[in-house]
Structure formats: structure tokens, C-alpha cells
Design a protein around this nucleic acid. Sequence first.
DNA 1: TTCAAAAATACAATCGATTGTATTTTTGGG
DNA 2: CCCAAAAATACAATCGATTGTATTTTTGAA
Lengths: 338, 338
Amino acid sequence: MKNKTTIHDIAKALSIDASTVSRALNNSPRVNQKTKDRILSKANELGYQRNLLASNLRKNKTNTIGVIVPRISRHFFSSVISGIEEAAYDAGYNVIICQSLEQLKRERDIVGTLLANRVAGVLLSVSMETNDYDHLLNMKNNGTPFLFFDRHCDIEGISSVLIDDVQGGFDATEHLILNGCKNIGHFSGPQKLSIYKNRLAGYIKALEKYKIPYRPELVLRSSLMEIDGTEGAKTLLSLPHKIDGLFSANDIAAIGAMKYFKNEGIRIPDEIAIVGFSNEPISEVIDPSLTTIDQPGFQIGQISTKLLLEEINKSSNLKKANKTILKSSLIERDSSRK
Amino acid sequence: MKNKTTIHDIAKALSIDASTVSRALNNSPRVNQKTKDRILSKANELGYQRNLLASNLRKNKTNTIGVIVPRISRHFFSSVISGIEEAAYDAGYNVIICQSLEQLKRERDIVGTLLANRVAGVLLSVSMETNDYDHLLNMKNNGTPFLFFDRHCDIEGISSVLIDDVQGGFDATEHLILNGCKNIGHFSGPQKLSIYKNRLAGYIKALEKYKIPYRPELVLRSSLMEIDGTEGAKTLLSLPHKIDGLFSANDIAAIGAMKYFKNEGIRIPDEIAIVGFSNEPISEVIDPSLTTIDQPGFQIGQISTKLLLEEINKSSNLKKANKTILKSSLIERDSSRK
DNA sequence: TTCAAAAATACAATCGATTGTATTTTTGGG
DNA sequence: CCCAAAAATACAATCGATTGTATTTTTGAA
């Protein structure tokens, strides 16, 4: 039943050698055009389909790149993936998409599987749980080129494509301040991830610029899921210090908070102005629409892929890690316009 | 640089045969425990990692299943994928996720790549452009088990996991009627896809039940992107027959229409009530919140995977295609409550 | 017509792991 | 202490394609 046509079957059918068939199918100049035609038509007739397992094994390389993201359902990540696919496709590479679901264990497993499948390279954005880099160091020692995008780890010799999160956090916070907020809460994520550390740094920087005292109790750390936003909102309201602004390190948690505030009858933005991060599509339509920081996902995907492919095709081993930093932009909507 | 440790390296280091190493790594009872221990520790020491290309080639099978969806960014599909991953992971299978982006060409390419990589089976939801089944018939002849979910084609011997779209369309339309609508427009998709044909059939069935004349000019066909919804809304408004209800075969187009209506100052649901389909997260937060039909994505993914794995592990060739039909449920929100 | 160069094709090893069969080693009952 | 059975290990073929080298065939200039 299974299609078992191999180059040997074709060779036998035409009484020629398998090596010639292989070369013909790869359009090698060493094979006569007439022979190529015969082989191609016979291959077609027999429903031949190259066995990439065998091919890749022999060539000791694949033209597949692995992509690991925390969740494909996040708009930012699916945009990045689109960018990756486009760039990879143009270069003749396939893409395997995997999601860690923010779990270190899954991330480890995925790295293992990708390496076992001998992918040509890996693009990844680490999970929130990733505080242990063994699997990544392993991949590095192993010689598999990889590159971080958005969420990275500091590993010697590994490049990354990032956005300027300090600036993003600064812009978001400054925007709130310029709209009259004086007591601004902040939802942050795991501090092991520099994106969250940096957004927080931007927040603090903005407070400093405007001489607003930094109150650590207004900064809540969580996994930034919707439920975390809801609970964070509750926590903030319970503080003696009343907040009038909130900068959340992602849109999802911001929305969780919005729902809670709305439920409590708190007016947004009048009583509390809110700014998110990532520009999820949902943020545009929620009421009030959510001011947020837009990240160029598609472009990040394209650039990352281009850099990774360079790395893959680089013969030399001179590792020159570089950080590519892209700009984000604030999108002003109703949740912050007082 | 590249990690080249093979079972032969381990074998040589321990002065034993590679076959023993292989058996040890696979925990075969034919190898002495002490030897296993030595091999395992040496493998660890050398940073050995099984080459799945070689392994799969030899075994002539992989434990990878391919998944093809139109777009990973659609909430419904990412839920299905989560279900698939969970079920596959439990059974020791890996998952390759691919998106056709609604393009037939890409779907064809993806099928080719998956077959070339000898995946154990494929789960797919066809693209809107898919009107030609050659690539799928090819996969069938080839003997690769596959199964449709949500969007299927009628191919002899191929099972599918679907939801009851006629019922869903009926429920949506009846809901509008019971809320007082008499002139209900409908956004439909390509009629080659039975999901859209069926939702339309449900729409018509509901009209018949309530003795409302069916007006074909109120049914617009498109790719159901947001822009199609916006344009569809414009078209519907230009008709002599004024509509007071709209059933869109997906949420995205419904939202496109909502935006247009809101822009035109048309009140929802008072002047026009709207029901979508798929329950995208965005539908819950848009203002007014969108009534929609929820599909059990996660469950669809789990069931599909279970059935596919059965198919894969079935030795016999007796093809007994079956359709599994799941129920959808209407979620009533503000866009339809008059 | 001849023959060296070029073109076309065949041969054979190889990628790394698996697995059926053969051989060696160990075990334990008599 | 011997030997058959069991256990452990070694040998060798194989999966399907690729590729360096060798051989055969063709070409065309002298």
C-alpha cells in the first residue's frame, strides 16, 4: 500500500544505475537531457517521491528550521511566524513551528526533538519559566545555529533580534504621565526575562524623568495571563495608595484588569488610564480601546530568519553575536485619553 | 564543531559493537544491565543524541504527525492545535504545524513536504481555495493516513471530525428570528467548503421553519476576512430590501461589518442584530459583544488525533471512513439582544 | 579513420541506526 | 567438572539517497 517507489525502482525500470537517477532528479549537468526526461517521466509514472529522511541523512543536513514560541495564539508571535515563513520559504527552507506553552519542560523537549531531527537552525523566544539554559547551551555546543527573538537569554555567541523594551516601557509610562497620571501601577512578568526587566526599567526611567517617586509596591509580577490581570487589578485597588494609571507589560493582563475595573464601576480612562503592550487585535476593539505598544512582528520574523540563514551558511566558526534592536511604537487609543 | 557522536563512537570507546549500543539505548532486554549502564554513561559523556533521520529511515516510519490549518492565528485553530498536541504528546508523537494561509498552492507544497518527510499521518483543515484534490488523493494513494477536521472534502475512505454546521447555522438564524429579525443577511464563504454550504443550509432551514421568504440577494459570498465583512455590510445597506439582522459564517467578517455599521451610525442590535460563528476571543470584548456559535476546538483536536492514531496503528487496510459530528453551541451576547 | 578530451553512465562507499542471525560467554543442574 | 540452555554480544545486511571515482560512450579535430 505505502508508496515505496525509490530511485532504485526507477533505475531498475529503466535499466540504469540509481546514481544516475539521483543525479537526474537533482538536475545534475552530468546527466544527458534525454535520460533526464525518461527518468522524470518514469518517476512521475511510478509516483516517486523523494525520501527526505534518506536524503538528509546522507547530506548530513536538512533545510528545515525550527521555531519555538511560547504560544502561537498570541498575535505578536503569529506575526513573527508569518515573517519567518516568508523569509524561509524564499530561501527554500521549511519551518517547523512549536509552542512551549510557557513551560520549561516542553521547551527542553522541543529542543531535543528539533536537534534529533537535525534541523538546520532554530529561532526561539524563550518561555517564562526558562531560568536554566542547559538545553540551550547543549544546542550551542552541538553546533546547531540558533537565534533569539523578542525574549532572549544572555548566551555568549548567540545573536538576538529584539525590540527596545526600555524605550517601550518608557514611552508607555511617559504617555500616562503626560495624560495626568501620578500614581501608576505596573504589571510585570518574570524578571529572568529581560523584556520584562527592561519594560520595568523604562517605567522607572519615565518616573524619574518626571520626578515621580518610584513605589515598588505598585509593581506586580505575574505570568501576565488574563486572570493575573484581574487579580492584579484587585490587589492594586486594595492598596492605600490610590492609582490613577496602569502600565501592563502585555495586553492580555491589561484586559484582565480592564474587565475587573469595569465590573467595579471604575471609569477608564477617567479614574484609571491604562496602557498595554503588544497590540493584540483584541485591544483595538475592546471598550474602551486599549492604548498599547506595537511591535513589528512580521519584520522581526523576517530579520531573524535572514540572520539565522546567514549563520547557517557561514562556513567559518567565528561567532560574532550581535543584537539587532528594533523600535516599537505607541498606539494611542481611548483607554488612556483623559 | 557539530556534534557528531554516533553509536559507533560510543561502541568504539567501549570496545563493543554498535548493535549492542543501539539496543542498550533502546533499553532492549537483550543487553546486560551493567553494559547498559556503561553505555548510557558514555553516551552522556560524549553528548550523544540519537539521529532520528537515520533511525526513522531504518524503521521506515516516523512518530511525527503533520497538521495543516489555514491560519494558526485563528483562535479556533489554535485551540484545535492545543488539543492535537496534548493527545499526540501523550501517545509519544511529535507534531509539525503548518499554515496554508488559505492558499491551495501552499497547501500542496506542505503536503509534499510532509510526505517527503514521511510523517506518520496528517490532520488537515483545507484552505478556502481548495477545489482540486489531487494532492490529497496522492496522499491517499501513497498510503499516508490522514483525517479532516472542521473543513473537509468528500474523499472516499477518509474520515473527518466535524461540527454540525447545519445546526449551527440554524441556531444562529433562529436566534435572530426569535429576536424579531425578519430580513436577515448572511455572509457565506466558498461553497466548495461544506462548512459554508452547511451553515447556509441551516440559515435557509431556519427561514423556512418560520415562513420567512429566502432572498438569495441577501446572501453574500466572500473569503470572510475583515475587509469582506466591511464591504459586505456596505453592499447589504445598498439593497432596496432593508435588513434588520445579519448572520456571518465567521466572527471576523461579522466584526468587519460591525465596524462599518457603527461608523455609519447604525445601532447594533436595535437596527441590525448580528450573530457570528467561531467564538473568537475578540468577540467577547468588542462593543457590543458579539453573539456567536462556539465550536469545541480543543475537543476536536483531541478526537481527531485519537482517530488518526488508530488509523496509523491499524494493520489492516480496511478503510471505514466515518464522520464524527460534534455539537456547537450558541453564545448569546449583546449584538443580538433587542 | 584515429584518438584524446569530454560527456555520460556505472560502481561502490557512505550517512547513522536498526534488526535478524550467528557466535561467544555465562549459568547452573547433574 | 561438563555441557546444554540461556544470556550476552558480535556480525552483517538494510533503509534510500548521495557523491567521489572509475569506466564506458560519444564527440570532433586532426
